[in-house]
């Protein structure tokens, strides 16, 4: 792996070296390393456009890293990764994609991740998207995440797109069975003329299923964000969504909440707020010695943590 790839790995997966546990590193459409473990099996899909990852029942305290790097200007790909997590597991899955585009052609990664999470299993899923490069070629990323949670299963998702992606369309679809829990923290920062669209759809189909969605966005420059959170309560369930955004400069944010209840015992809440950084927050940090730009940066850093 060259220096660029190493740096991108660090950005998207916080990796300084090859990860421990199972991993699959995809670089410019080719495998740059793969490792299965006794409990986690990674296989190429027959169609050759992605991987299937199998977690044995009862796999605990293990992790699976599947970072993707694109450094060739003009590389475009569509990748399907399916995760089959057995029952009673407790695992961490770290995905992430970095595009470095210094050339004149557009680069694009579309990743469709589908999770089948078995009874009483717990999955923590971390996904970071990052772009860089000073070429005229654009960087596009369109992740789709489909989550099927079986009885008593829990998925904790930490997804973010912090910089450098010109346009993104992020789709998340989750279906929850009885007693299942989905916790999702989604963060997006856009700048310049970037655009981002996020669509999060949750179906609470099982009794005692719970979802808690927190979406935070910061739109700087002339960027635009469009966030839709759509929760359906079809059983005795609890759904909570919070969509909180900061706009700066000439940024535009559209937040659309949608709640639908088809069961009298469904309890659904959606909170949405958009505003600029509070002046008093900047002043407070200035009394601690930060200038205005530093103060804004700290506030956004905290907000998107």
């Amino acid at each position: 792996m060259d220096e660029l790839e190493k740096r991108m790995l660090k950005e998207v997966a916080e990796l300084d070296s090859l990860p421990v546990g199972a991993f699959n590193i995809r670089s410019n459409g080719e495998s740059a390393g793969r490792c299965s473990t006794a409990n986690i099996q990674i296989e190429s899909r027959e169609s050759g456009d992605g991987i299937n990852v199998y977690f044995k029942d009862g796999t605990k305290n293990e992790s699976c890293h599947i970072p993707v790097i694109i450094s060739k200007s003009g590389h475009k790909e569509c990748v399907y990764n399916d995760f089959f997590v057995g029952s009673d597991c407790d695992v961490v899955i770290v995905a992430g994609c970095g595009i470095s585009n210094c050339g004149g052609h557009d680069s694009q990664h579309d990743g469709i991740h589908t999770f089948h999470i078995g009874k009483n299993s717990k999955v923590k899923y971390v996904e970071k998207h990052y772009g860089e490069g000073n070429g005229t070629g654009k960087r596009f990323m369109n992740p789709t995440t489909v989550v099927n949670l079986d009885e008593g299963a829990t998925m904790e998702m930490d997804t973010s797109q912090i910089a450098g992606i010109n346009d993104t369309y992020r789709i998340t679809k989750a279906v929850l069975g009885p007693g299942a829990t989905l916790i999702m923290h989604d963060k997006i920062l856009t700048n310049f003329d970037q655009t981002a669209k996020a669509e999060i759809t949750v179906e609470l189909n099982g009794d005692d299923s719970v979802c808690d969605i927190v979406s935070r966005g910061v739109a700087k420059g002339e960027s635009e964000q469009d966030v839709i959170i759509d929760i359906a309560g079809n059983a005795k369930c609890k759904g909570h969504a919070e969509c909180d955004s900061i706009i700066m400069d000439k940024g535009v944010i559209v937040a659309t909440p949608k709640l639908k209840a088809t069961c009298v015992d469904a309890s659904l809440i959606h909170e949405a707020a958009i505003g600029k950084i509070a002046g008093e927050q900047i002043i407070k940090l200035m009394t601690l010695g930060l200038n205005e730009q530093e103060a804004e940066q700290k506030i956004i850093e905290g907000f998107l943590r």
């Binding site: 509070a278 008093e280 927050q281 407070k284 601690l288 930060l290 700290k298 506030i299 850093e301 905290g302």
Partner: peptide, 19 residues
């Protein structure tokens, strides 16, 4: 401040270390 300012996301340790 008479009315201390609240922040979303920043922690007590963050502000103490800035201070």
């Amino acid at each position: 401040f008479q009315q201390p300012v609240r922040f979303k996301g920043l922690k007590v340790k963050d502000l103490l270390s800035i201070a």
